Simulated scan of single mutants.
Amino acid sequence: MDVLTHFFVGLHIIGIASLLGGFLTQMKAMGQGAARFVPAMLHGAVTMLVTGIVLVGLNEADDQSVNHLKIGIKLALLIVILGLVYVKRDEEKVDKGLFGLVGLLTTANIFIAVLWT
């Protein structure tokens, strides 16, 4: 079970790297008002959602302690991120504030995962 859990943790990290990496590649464009949500951001958010659900399920099945409040907050942030990226994915330019919000929520999600024990 540990190997399976570690595999999905790895996939979860790849998802966050894709989401945050897509955001960071658009930082210069954001300064010029031409940022857009790239496909890597959408794929990363979906990967995070699926692997996160699987990880909670694996931990519950293994009788591990799961902090449901933490998971609920992370899920809520991810749903907002996923909704924004999905709805605006085909637009040539995305508002700076909206694009920055996705970066902020992504970063908050990372720090919640790492710091909330």
Rank of each mutant, 00 (worst) to 15 (best):
M1V: 14
D2F: 10
L4D: 07
H6G: 09
V9A: 03
V9W: 09
L11D: 02
I13F: 09
I14S: 04
I14N: 04
G15K: 00
I16V: 15
A17K: 01
S18V: 00
G21T: 01
G21P: 00
G22Y: 00
G22N: 06
F23R: 02
F23N: 05
Q26S: 02
M27A: 15
M27I: 15
M27R: 15
M30T: 07
G31I: 05
G31R: 14
G31L: 12
Q32R: 15
Q32M: 12
G33D: 05
A34D: 11
A34P: 06
A35R: 02
V38R: 06
L42W: 02
A45E: 01
V46M: 09
L49M: 15
V50Q: 06
V50Y: 04
V50E: 09
T51R: 03
I53C: 15
L55M: 13
L58T: 10
D62L: 07
D62Y: 10
D63H: 15
D63K: 15
D63I: 09
S65D: 12
V66T: 06
H68L: 11
H68M: 11
L69E: 12
K70W: 07
I71Y: 07
G72S: 05
I73K: 05
L75M: 13
L75N: 06
L75I: 14
A76W: 01
L77W: 06
I79S: 08
I79A: 14
V80S: 03
G83V: 03
L84M: 12
Y86G: 10
E92G: 12
K93F: 10
L98S: 08
L98C: 07
L98W: 10
F99T: 00
L101F: 09
G103D: 05
L104R: 07
L104S: 11
L104I: 15
L105Q: 08
L105F: 08
N109V: 08
N109M: 09
N109Y: 05
I110Y: 04
F111N: 04
I112F: 13
I112C: 09
I112E: 04
A113S: 15
T117A: 14
T117D: 09
